[in-house]
Amino acid sequence: MEKFDLNLLTVALAIAEEKSVSRAAQRLELSQPAVSLALGKLRRRLGDELFVRTPGGMAPTPKAVGVIELARQVTQRVKEEVLQQKAFNPETSTTEFTIALSDIGEMVFLPKLLQRVQELAPHASIASVTLPASEVGAALESGRLDLAVGYFPDLKKNNFFQQRLFSHNFICLLRADHPLRGDRLTLAQFLQLGHAVVRAEGRSQEVFDRLLERKNIRRRVVLSTPHFMSIPFIVASSDLLVTVPMAVGTSFASFANIRLVQPPLKIPGFDLKQHWHRRYHDDARHQWLRRLVADLFKDDARWPEPPASRRQSQKPG
């Protein structure tokens, strides 16, 4: 098999269907001598005349009949399974999409994404997973993950694609009846208050932490927690201050006794993106999922506006 040229089968099939070497050459976009040479190779390889001239054109020998049928099956399977891109049908698919979401991902992305997937792919499902940052790349490469959506600054190698969805920023939270009033903290107030700090698997909090380090600002940390979901209950029942991504803050303020206040310094924003491995770049199922995420979120995340004192200088994420 290593020495057998499978292209010879397509030549035999073309001659059989056209009943002419010259017409087979035209169909294959080859010269007539090239087709004659290929037929000669196949004859010698199989030890059979394969085609003989008759008044009706080139007629196959019994040996050739079997070769032609096999060639037809092989070429048809190659067309269907190799050359044609398999379509993804969301209406009938029972696939499970596995997505790594960063610390704010489930609040920002998952509700809208789940709703749209249920509308367009009613039999499909979503698995949202949290992985250490060091494992996300390998999981995308192996296929255990379809997408990583959120803030994943380490996924920059050549084998990874990324698409920016939108930019995001930070906001501070206090309980609604906190004795400090106003829509914006002073630096003195920021330093005086006790802070709750989230140390989650996600990386977005690093943006804020690095800013404080560069400016040599030390918070008075009263509580450190790996979980965002405990924050609204802690803040609503204490005098603690917490600084979180805008989407997290607006979500918490919608159901807890919490109000939004602007931090005392300008905090750099960060881009939320979707990331995938190049192995799956052309896969129809992956392409459908990525288009869905982009259509839902690209430059279209709208959170409640920040307090009035900063509306002119800061756009919502």
Rank of each mutant, 00 (worst) to 15 (best):
A138G: 13
E141G: 04
L145P: 09
R144P: 01
A176P: 03
A124K: 00
S128E: 11
F166P: 02
S167N: 11
R144K: 14
R175C: 05
N169Q: 14
Y151M: 08
E141D: 06
L173P: 08
A138D: 07
S125Q: 13
K157L: 14
L140D: 13
N158Q: 11
L147D: 06
Q189H: 14
S142R: 01
L187R: 01
V136F: 07
F166A: 10
L187E: 14
F161C: 11
Q163H: 12
T186L: 13
G143R: 08
L174M: 02
I126W: 08
D183Y: 02
S142V: 07
I126Y: 13
F166H: 13
R164F: 08
F160P: 01
S142H: 02
A139S: 14
S128G: 11
A188R: 15
P153Y: 13
P122Y: 07
A133T: 14
Q189P: 01
R181C: 02
L180M: 06
D154M: 14
K156H: 00
L131G: 08
F160V: 02
K156W: 00
L165W: 03
A148N: 02
P122H: 05
D183K: 02
Q163E: 15
A176L: 13
A124G: 06
L174Q: 01
T186D: 12
A176F: 04
L145V: 12
P122I: 07
F152P: 08
